[in-house]
C-alpha cells in the first residue's frame, strides 16, 4: 500500500487531501509545519509527498530544495495558492515534480499523485509499451494494434505514449495538456477532447475492445477492460 506525506498547514485542505487519498487506498501522514515536514520527508518509507508552498517554520520552496540537497528523491507535488507561471517554474526548478494550484479538484490532485507514485516505482527503461493488443515502439516510432500498424501524427504519438505510460490511471485534461503539449494555460474544454477523439478513432476501431475510456467529470484513461 503506497504511503504519502501531506505537509499542509491549512486543516481543511489537509483533511480534503487525506480523505481523497485514503478513499483510494493510500496511507496518509499529515504534518502542518515546514521544518518538521523536512525531517519526516527524509524517511524513505514515503512514496510521495504533497507540499504546500506557504508553511509555518520553513516555506515549501526551502523544504524541497533541502530535501533534494540531502539526496532524497521521493516525488514531490507542490501545492500553492499562487497560479503565477513564475511560481510554478521556481517550484519545479527547486526539485518539485509537479505543481498544483489551490483550490484544486480532489480528483485532479489524486490523478497527479498517482502519476508521481508510478514514476517513483523502480522502472526498467522500456523501449516498447504495451497494453492489451496495443503496442508502442518508442525507438522505431511505430504503433501497432492487433498486429496492424497505425499511422499516427507526432502529437498523437506523444499523446498515446503518455496515456500508455500511465495505463489504468485517470489523466485529467490539464495533465494531458501540460505533459503532451507543455502548455500551462486553459485551452478550453473541448480542445483536448478533440485530440483524444482523433486518437480514439485510430486505435479503437470497430470490432476491437475500446482501450481509451472517458472518466466522467475528470478526464481519460487508457486501460484494458475485463
Amino acid at each position: 500500500m503506497p504511503r504519502i506525506l501531506v505537509i499542509e498547514d491549512d486543516d481543511v485542505t489537509a483533511r480534503e487531501i487525506a480523505a481523497e487519498l485514503t478513499s483510494h487506498g493510500i496511507d496518509v501522514d499529515r504534518i502542518a509545519d515546514g521544518s518538521e515536514g523536512l525531517l519526516r520527508a527524509a524517511d524513505p518509507c514515503y512514496d510521495a509527498i504533497t507540499l504546500d508552498m506557504m508553511l509555518p517554520g520553513m516555506d515549501g520552496l526551502s523544504v524541497v530544495t533541502q530535501l533534494r540537497a540531502q539526496g532524497v528523491v521521493t516525488p514531490v507535488l507542490m501545492i500553492s495558492a499562487l497560479c503565477d507561471v513564475d511560481e510554478r517554474v521556481r517550484g519545479l526548478r527547486a526539485g518539485g515534480d509537479d505543481y498544483l494550484t489551490k483550490p484544486f479538484a480532489p480528483d485532479e490532485m489524486l490523478a497527479r499523485v498517482e502519476v508521481l507514485l508510478r514514476r517513483h516505482r523502480p522502472q526498467v527503461p522500456q523501449t516498447v509499451l504495451s497494453v492489451a493488443d496495443l503496442e508502442l515502439d518508442l525507438v522505431r516510432h511505430v504503433a501497432r494494434r492487433a498486429d496492424k500498424e497505425l499511422s499516427l501524427l507526432p502529437t498523437e504519438f506523444k499523446l498515446l505514449e503518455f496515456l500508455m505510460r500511465h495505463a489504468g490511471q485517470v489523466l485529467t485534461r490539464t495533465m494531458i495538456f501540460e505533459t503532451v503539449w507543455g502548455f500551462h494555460f486553459d485551452p478550453g474544454t473541448n480542445l483536448i477532447d478533440v485530440h483524444i477523439g482523433r486518437l480514439r478513432r485510430k486505435i479503437d476501431v470497430a470490432g476491437l475492445a475500446p482501450l481509451i475510456h472517458t472518466v466522467r467529470g475528470s478526464g481519460y484513461s487508457l486501460a484494458q477492460t475485463d
Partner: peptide, 21 residues
C-alpha cells in the same frame, strides 16, 4: 468564490462516483 465552488464540484464528483454510470 473559487474555494467553495471547488468544494461544490468535488461533492458533485463524489456523488457522480457513488451513483455510477
Amino acid at each position: 468564490l473559487r474555494t467553495p465552488l471547488t468544494r461544490l464540484r468535488s461533492r458533485l464528483y463524489r456523488l457522480q462516483q457513488q451513483f455510477g454510470e
